[in-house]
């Protein structure tokens, strides 16, 4: 079973992301509605990857990412950033902050599935 943490303050967006990713067999999902909650959940349980929004209250996605990359246990956690800011500069910024991949909204179900499959596939190989 693959456990994915989906972080977005918009419930509709979380639901949409999960609806898309349900097509991937053997995955289960945990929601977090803020960056703080995401960090808390990551510190208390193990996940195979995180899908992370950038624009959230208290602390945004980049801050979550910076924090995660500063933690020994989480340094290698695959993180996919999902954001409306699709420009090259934003992409550069989040990849620099340590994102594994970057997906601009709006995305199609196929696009996000492909992106997540690529991340999970890569992980499976590196484990093997």
């Amino acid at each position: 079973m693959t456990d994915i943490l989906v972080v977005d303050d918009s419930k509709v967006m979380r639901d949409m992301i999960i609806a898309c990713l349900r097509a991937i067999p053997e995955t289960s999902f945990v929601h977090a509605s803020s960056g703080l909650e995401a960090i808390e959940r990551l510190s208390l349980a193990t996940f195979d990857m995180m899908v992370l929004d950038l624009n959230m209250p208290d602390i945004g996605g980049v801050e979550v990412l910076e924090f995660v990359r500063g933690q020994d246990t989480l340094r290698s956690l695959p993180v996919m950033i999902v954001t409306t800011r699709g420009d090259e500069q934003s992409r550069e910024r989040v990849l620099q902050a340590g994102a594994t991949s970057f997906l601009a909204k709006p995305f199609t179900p196929d696009a996000i599935i492909a992106e997540v499959r690529a991340i999970l596939g890569g992980r499976a190989e590196s484990v093997a």
Binding site: K11, V12, C20, A23
Partner: peptide
Amino acid sequence: TATADLKEFIAAYLVEA
């Protein structure tokens, strides 16, 4: 089909918007 139809979220979208 296995693919989600994001149009189905329109009602929830309206509420959140």
